[in-house]
């Protein structure tokens, strides 16, 4: 698929007035995230990688945003959301239990671990999780639908859309301090904003 914002790289503004020092440090840390798990076991890690690939498939013509690493970081550092559904265990426990249960479901249905299934079969199992159809003792009473909605989806998609690569794809202006924006109206754009291909405005 053609780039919607060809040539736009939010990081090219790194040394402009759009980025202040705290922002540079935060983005540097984000880009330098360790790729090896600190929280998940090797089995959990493989399942998590496969889940991330289905929840947020990425183009092959660039290095992928390391989504499993961001999930691992959140669990390892205990970065909480500020709330937890009463029916869900604490976030780390939920992930461990959910990934193991998903793998059990894969083996039961297809005699293979989740990460070895075809993308179609993986999608199908994730859809069953989304609609609450997966159950069994390995879930430990945790509703799979809640796990999907409140752990799987936010932990993976938030990590993706917090990454500069994603900002380039959607044409987001990105960091903006001290310089913000001047041209505010419809179809108006500052010179330091992304140019959309095939848009007349």
């Amino acid at each position: 698929m053609a780039d919607r914002y060809p040539g736009y790289d939010v990081q090219s503004k790194r040394w402009s007035q759009s980025w202040n020092e705290p922002t540079r440090q935060v983005i540097d840390r984000r880009l330098a995230i360790p790729r090896e798990p600190r929280f998940f076991s090797p089995d959990e890690w493989r399942t998590l990688q496969a889940v991330c690939d289905r929840i947020m498939p990425q183009p092959t013509d660039r290095p992928p945003v390391p989504l499993p690493a961001f999930v691992d970081q959140k669990m390892a550092d205990g970065l909480l959301d500020g709330y937890r559904y009463a029916a869900l265990p604490p976030q780390g426990d939920a992930w461990r239990r959910g990934l193991a249960a998903l793998d059990v479901a894969a083996r039961q249905a297809h005699c293979d671990p989740f990460h070895d299934l075809t993308p179609d079969r993986q999608d199908d199992l994730l859809r069953q999780m989304q609609t609450g159809e997966l159950a069994g003792p390995e879930w430990g009473g945790m509703p799979c639908k809640l796990f999907f909605e409140h752990r799987v989806i936010p932990d993976i998609t938030h990590a993706y859309y917090a990454h500069p690569v994603a900002w380039n794809e959607i044409g987001f202006g990105g960091p903006a301090s001290p310089r913000g924006y001047v041209r505010m109206g419809l179809d108006r754009r500052d010179p330091w904003e992304a140019v959309e291909a095939n848009h007349a405005g």
Binding site: Q17, S177, P178, R179, G180, Y181, V182, P191, W192
Partner: peptide, 10 residues
């Protein structure tokens, strides 16, 4: 203004 003259483009 924020950024002063260094942020002159804004």
């Amino acid at each position: 203004n924020m950024g002063g003259w260094r942020n002159w483009r804004q």
